[in-house]
Design a protein around this nucleic acid. Structure first.
Length: 561
RNA sequence: UGGGGCGUAGCCAAGUUGGCAAGGCACGGGACUUUGGAUCCCGCCACCGCAGGUUCGAAUCCUGCCGCCCCAGCCA
């Protein structure tokens, strides 16, 4: 690229908007909307849409509305509305005063429905749901018209008003658009516009028992709000002719344009509301905000930042081809984000006692260590207490080291990060042969620099002073499923990863970590990025969620043999 | 032998009017390193779904074929 412009996400939708603008089509500016149905929690697929819609509004100096697509009283709940608002805000977007509900348009929609009836473009159908389905035809055969299709305008109006007044039982009649029962696009075979449902609506209460269908409500809602580009996912592409048809019949001055893009799929997880719902309901996860879930709430609880999710949305792009993004890309993105903004600290996950025999008992040496070694001034320093007994990671000691092993083993040396070089002199085992302690000696000249004799020390391992260690609980999260595409075939729950959560209750962190506030993040050196759980850090107990492990190239070498 | 979409490297994805294939991730190699982290270099043999055609020249235009996705809720 030879352009010096900061790379703006380019995609076919922005292309279309550019063209529209160039043609002078939107003098009032660009208006988009994010229209979730409040019947579940938002997930990262929604985040893609949110970033797209709000991102466009931001970049084109327009606005983006948040609209609850609440046309179905039986599935929607207040809890979801609140979570949706919280999630969009957390992602960093602001709808200003433009918060709406499709339900707020029920009156207008009703008036417009009467208008369609008067134009002879809609009729009341007395058939049962089964009859309607049976007469819709198939994908290859046309449907057959309802016997009620040609009622008079007067009769239709009368019936429709009585439907509204509650004279008929649920499901007994519907209002249908009169389009074409032989249309090759089945969505145009006289789609249902209204159904009767005696249910309280979370917003309109018992004011209505007539509820509009999505197709009838959506485009009109867009038109009412002055939406210029109504961006939705691919499965609505076949609905676009219907979307346009309603708008055309109503002869509204404002004509929003529907555009469709491919929804996000991610490997090793599921994104469908149904499956997510099942996992939560059956307690296979701890709730909608379980850190293993791809929900916004889950990612937030895990410790992901809104910046990383926005960056992820930019990296994956927007197109029309069905695609499944590698979970590794999300992980890389959060690592990149956290790398430069989170302080480092040491935390031993599974401690092994190391006694430094030539260091005086009772003496404590305060070591100054940079919080961000790549650029120390950026985050300053903290004091790390050092004493005769330290704890190191069990896996950093191996009695019979494989080739290329750079950590500790009998007779070998290793550096304690920011501390001295130590040599393993003796291994203490219990009756079962399990290593319980290492007796080591340190090289006092190496506290602040390399060995004077120039000998090379392979690696530095993290450690904590036993006497100063702060106990922490670590929750190591891993992918929720063991296969790349759990939703593919069969029962997705069969592929749940039994190791998706490992709890380490005996981890020990260095002193500074004891001051961590809920919601703070650290990079525990050589292990990964961690997040002090906002809810479970209580009564002085520290619980950290592993956001993502560090890249582990040693594991890769081992795996290759 | 319905309609609507989509097919560019293992995964995403740019490719405006045809001029002769961006970038990211992953992967491989190297440099550097008191995180086997980070960073920096280099590489990643692309029959642009396939086959024809038009053209001096096609991922881009034309024709035919193949594959995948969506649609037959009084769900959204």
């Amino acid at each position: 690229m030879t352009t010096n412009e900061p790379s703006r996400p380019r995609n076919f939708i922005r292309q279309i908007i550019d063209d529209d603008l160039a043609a002078g089509r939107h003098p009032g500016g660009i208006v988009t909307r994010f229209p979730p149905e409040p019947n579940g929690y938002l997930h990262i697929g929604h985040a893609k849409s949110i970033c797209l819609n709000f991102g466009i509004a931001r970049d084109y100096g327009g606005r983006c509305h948040l609209r609850m697509d609440d046309t179905n009283p039986s599935k929607e709940e207040q809890e979801y509305i609140e979570s949706i608002q919280a999630d969009v805000r957390w992602l960093g977007f602001d709808w200003g005063t433009h918060y709406y509900h499709a339900a707020d348009y029920f009156d207008r929609l009703y008036e417009w429905a009467e208008l369609l009836i008067r134009k002879g473009k809609a009729y009341v159908d007395d058939q049962t749901a089964d009859q309607i389905r049976d007469t819709r035809g198939t994908l290859t055969e046309p449907g057959t018209p309802s016997p009620f299709r040609d009622r008079s305008v007067e009769e239709n109006l009368d019936l429709f008003r009585r439907m509204r007044a509650g004279e008929f039982p649920d499901g007994s009649r519907v209002l249908r658009a009169k389009i074409d029962m032989a249309a090759p696009n089945v969505n145009l075979r006289d789609p249902v516009m209204y159904r009767i449902r005696r249910e309280s609506h979370h917003r309109t209460g018992d004011a209505w028992l007539l509820y509009p269908m999505y197709d009838w409500a959506h485009g009109q809602s867009d038109a009412i709000e002055g939406i210029t580009h109504s961006i939705c996912t691919l499965e609505f592409e076949a609905h676009r002719p219907l979307y346009d048809w309603f708008l055309e019949q109503l002869e509204l001055p404002h004509r929003p344009r529907q555009l469709e893009f491919a929804r996000l799929n991610l490997t090793f997880t599921v994104m469908s509301k149904r499956m997510l719902n099942e996992l939560v309901r059956e307690r296979l996860v701890a709730g909608w905000d379980d850190p293993r879930l791809p929900t916004i709430a889950g990612l937030r609880r895990r410790g992901y930042t809104p910046e990383s999710i926005r960056e992820f949305a930019d990296r994956i792009g927007v197109a029309k081809a069905d695609s499944t993004v590698d979970m590794g890309l999300l992980e890389t993105t959060i690592r990149d984000d956290l790398n430069t903004r989170v302080p480092r600290a040491m935390c031993v996950h599974q401690p092994l006692r190391v006694v430094l025999e030539n260091f005086p008992e009772g003496e404590v040496r305060e070591i100054e260590a940079p919080n961000f070694p790549d650029d120390p001034p950026k985050m300053g320093f903290r004091k790390v207490p050092f004493s005769r007994v330290v704890l190191i990671e069990r896996e950093d000691f191996v009695e019979q080291p494989p080739k290329k092993f750079l950590r500790l083993s009998p007779g070998k040396e290793v550096r304690l990060r920011w501390g001295p070089v130590i040599r393993c002199d003796r291994v203490v085992q219990d009756e079962a042969g399990r290593v319980v302690e290492l007796r080591c000696s340190l090289d006092p000249d190496t506290f602040t620099g390399p060995p004077r004799d120039g000998r090379k020390i392979g690696n530095a391992v993290h450690w904590v002073s036993e006497a100063h260690a702060v106990p922490v609980t670590l929750r190591l999260y891993d992918r929720l499923f063991t296969v790349p595409n759990p939703a593919a075939r069969g029962e997705f729950k069969q592929h749940l990863n039994p190791g998706s959560l490992e709890i380490l209750a005996d981890a020990r962190a260095e002193r500074v970590v004891g001051q961590a506030k809920p919601g703070e993040r650290y990079q525990f050196e050589r292990r990964g990025y961690y997040f002090a759980d906002p809810q479970d850090c209580r009564d002085g107990r520290l619980v950290f969620n592993r956001i993502v492990p560090l890249r582990d190239s040693w594991a890769k070498i081992v795996a290759k043999g």
